[in-house]
Amino acid sequence: AETYDFLFKFLVIGSAGTGKSCLLHQFIENKFKQDSNHTIGVEFGSRVVNVGGKTVKLQIWDTAGQERFRSVTRSYYRGAAGALLVYDITSRETYNSLAAWLTDARTLASPNIVVILCGNKKDLDPEREVTFLEASRFAQENELMFLETSALTGENVEEAFLKCARTILNKIDSGELDPERMGSGIQYGDISLRQLRQPRSAQAVAPQPCGC
């Protein structure tokens, strides 16, 4: 059986054709998905990663960007702990719709959702329509992390997911996020339990008088 300290629910959102599925594929399979077609509804993948000494299982929901699937994909948002918000640096249109996607994520998933903005298709720099600077300004204004990625070359893909996971872990450590709260998108795994020498709660349980 897989063992991990935490399980995080992640979303990959953004307009159609920005390369969301390719990012997920690159992250999980370590290769570029060649003949990719439109995602129907939602796809699902998972990977266990090591972040800051903890084992974290990322449960990633990759959503369709097409408008016709919007209401279906929205129904998967609830309880996500993190999200990759993806646009295509060669398409201003995909950049322009970021605000709408972000609103969706914060209202439907959780106001505390940790979002990292990914400007994908970094490898197509000559066709760039969105500058690094304006995107990073948008990220700052909206309290997002930001990276430019390439699902083709794999540049920054791993980093995007890990950065998001690390931020969530930090928030757990600082108490900003409570994994025990329902709908937090975080679950404890088996390891966290095994490492407890004396369970915290053992003191809480009134020791019963020895019956011998």
Binding site: I40, G41, V42, E43, F44, W61, D62
Partner: peptide, 9 residues
């Protein structure tokens, strides 16, 4: 159920 409704499962 959500996994089932996700086509990659």
């Amino acid at each position: 159920g959500h996994k089932l409704l996700s086509l990659s499962s």
